[in-house]
């Protein structure tokens, strides 16, 4: 059984690039365009890891993560957040919520794979 990774980002092409890299490494990828859509994907099915952007229209990444942390099914799910250097105060908020893995945009797909393999077992 391949592991399920939920990727939340408003850029469809970013999702596709990440998705190609992750699928190539044997993961199963679920995509969502913002926090609201991502919440609908948390339907009880096992999700092994969440990758979420911070800055999104609709529901932003920080709000989304605060919902995830309140959901008994998903509160232990590892989360990687995508951000840029200019968003220090967002990073601070995210860290307070318990997000420890941060990836600064732009990143290379290999860096994403590397981060994922630190957080979940194959």
């Amino acid at each position: 059984m391949s592991k399920n990774i939920l990727i939340v980002d408003d850029s469809m092409s970013l999702r596709q690039v990440v998705s190609i890299a992750l699928t190539g490494a044997g993961y199963n990828v679920i995509e969502a365009g913002d926090g609201n859509e991502a919440l609908t994907k948390l339907n009880g099915d096992k999700i092994h890891l969440i990758v979420s952007d911070v800055n999104m229209p609709g529901m932003d990444g920080i709000t989304f993560v605060s919902h995830v942390k309140q959901d008994a099914n998903y509160k232990f799910t590892p989360i990687i957040m995508l951000t840029t250097e200019s968003q220090q105060e967002m990073i601070q908020k995210g860290k307070e919520l318990g997000v420890k893995a941060w990836l600064v945009k732009p990143f290379k797909p290999e860096q994403m794979l590397d981060a994922v393999s630190k957080l979940i077992l194959p």
């Binding site: 509160k75 232990f76 799910t77 590892p78 989360i79 318990g98 997000v99 420890k100 393999s117 630190k118 957080l119 979940i120 077992l121 194959p122």
Partner: peptide, 12 residues
Amino acid sequence: RNGLDPRSFFHY
């Protein structure tokens, strides 16, 4: 609670 699993770090 922060979604970190010691085992996966050892694996890495």
